[in-house]
């Protein structure tokens, strides 16, 4: 039973990781490429880590939950690095398929505390 669950989670997680990187390689401009790694890859790795929790917890009397720490850490840091990258790209005026709003390129130090 746990073997089936682990197998399904492992394949689904790896599939999402792959789709994230596919988005990175395939999409046309930087801002759309940013979506793939931040969402799909994070969830994919999260699913793999949950699979790891189930795998190492089955048959033991004490659950092995420390993989959750990596999951939590990734879910907190992925949006922060995406925000930083988007800010850097707006600052460098990277070409975008969507029209930029006015006032998007201001001083880099503005809004520093928000992360």
């Amino acid at each position: 039973m746990t073997e089936i669950a682990v197998s399904v989670l492992v394949v689904v997680g790896a599939l999402f990781t792959f789709i994230g990187s596919l988005g990175l390689a395939r999409l046309k401009d930087f801002y759309t490429r940013l979506h793939g790694p931040t969402k799909a890859t994070t969830l994919g790795v999260g699913a793999l880590l949950v699979a790891s929790v189930i795998h190492f917890s089955s048959g033991e009397d004490m659950p092995s939950l420390h993989e959750l720490l990596v999951t939590l850490f990734l879910f907190i840091t992925a949006p922060v690095s995406a925000l930083m990258l988007a800010k850097a790209a707006l600052h460098l005026r990277v070409r975008s398929a969507a029209s930029l709003l006015s006032g998007t390129d201001d001083d880099a130090d503005a809004g520093e505390q928000s992360g």
Binding site: T17, F30, P37, V45, A88, V94
Partner: peptide
């Protein structure tokens, strides 16, 4: 562009 390469590195370490 440079942000593309940084994003690629970010994805590489998560992979």
């Amino acid at each position: 562009d440079e942000p593309d390469r940084v994003l690629a590195l970010d994805t590489l370490y998560i992979n």
